[in-house]
Simulated assay, not measured.
Amino acid sequence: MIGSRIAALGHYQPATVLTNEDLAALVDTSDEWIRTRVGIRTRHKAADDEPVDELAAHAAAKALAAAGLTARDIDLVLVATSTAVDRSPNTAARVAARLAMGSPAVMDLNVVCAGFTHALASADHAVRAGSARRALVIGADKMTAITDWTDRTTCVLTGDGAGAAVVEAVEEGEEPGIAPVLWGSVPEMGHAVRIEGTPSRFAQEGQTVYRWATTQLPPIARRVCERGGVAPEDLAAVVLHQANLRIIEPVAQRIGAVNAVVARDVVDSGNTSAASIPMAFAKLVERGEIKKGDPVLLFGFGGNLSYAGQIVRCP
């Protein structure tokens, strides 16, 4: 069994930006109220005719270019999303068609906000098992399409975007760049984050999620570090699901990653669900805030009260 690594990252966000002032014209809110409670300043909104697979394909193309690969070098496409409209063809198949790939295996995973880290682990497993050599792992969501624009507690949170990673097998004798995943869920509390109804709408029990995230997740994240063989104080970066700055900052502090750069992309992008971790990670790399080989904690959490985390090495 040969391990895997992340070879390159890419991200994409739609051109339209919604500010807090824009939202204040829709519901009873204000820039101060939003910043104080969730830390968000802006978020991106896809056009009505800009589907999830288009967002995903843009991010994937950037990741492939950064890796120096073509679409036909990929033999597995995994897309983490909970906002795809159609059931078939799935989003992964549509991304493969947009990029003119050969004949990759194509699968979607719906683990909502923890989707990317679940998909990354699945790609790592496929490489280790020998069923894939190079995989494209994408987190993409169009959260604004399922937003209730009359609910002042949730409409201020959501944004659209996509992030992608090229995952490939390491050379023989090379240390893996993706450590074993630690994942799980609290299914009896799954009602705390919902995308339900016709049409589907996002809703959550904010205080329940906040208490769970800030109290239960830090010890789990420290176990992720143990599994990856890295002490929290040796982490170069912490990339949590970009849910809410009031969750990200205390969780990162309680993990004990005192020397790490903490991703705060939620401030400019809002909550983009499965896209949030790969987008935030790609931006840290793009800005040069972390360097090749640095240990990074990726930790997704959210819908189903699912969680998944792993230590990865910066590409």
Rank of each mutant, 00 (worst) to 15 (best):
A179F: 02
G197D: 10
D75W: 06
Q216A: 14
A126C: 12
R41D: 10
E168W: 06
C225H: 05
V137D: 01
G309A: 09
W33M: 11
N304I: 12
T19S: 15
T81V: 07
D160A: 10
D151W: 06
I2A: 11
D53L: 03
S30F: 08
D31P: 08
P176E: 00
L240Y: 00
T16M: 12
Y12E: 01
T272F: 04
D151V: 03
A192L: 11
Y307V: 03
T70A: 14
T42V: 07
T208E: 14
V17P: 00
A121Y: 06
E289M: 11
I138M: 08
P180T: 05
L120M: 09
V127L: 15
A260N: 05
I311K: 01
T215D: 11
R43D: 06
K45P: 01
R254F: 07
Q216R: 15
V95L: 13
P250C: 09
M107P: 03
Q207K: 15
R246Q: 01
S200E: 12
R211H: 15
A61M: 13
G161N: 08
N90I: 02
E21R: 14
T208R: 13
L298W: 05
D86R: 14
I138R: 03
T214F: 03
K142N: 05
A236W: 02
A96H: 02
V27G: 11
A135E: 06
T91P: 07
A236K: 06
K45M: 07
G303R: 02
E21A: 15
V230W: 04
A56C: 10
D31H: 10
E205N: 08
G256H: 02
Q310P: 03
T153P: 08
V209S: 01
A164Q: 05
P295Q: 07
M143A: 04
D73G: 11
A179H: 00
A65G: 15
A132P: 05
G228S: 10
I178G: 03
A119E: 02
Q207V: 12
R133I: 05
L76W: 01
S200C: 09
D86Y: 12
V106W: 02
D28V: 03
E188C: 08
N304G: 14
E188G: 11
V85W: 14
G10C: 08
C225T: 04
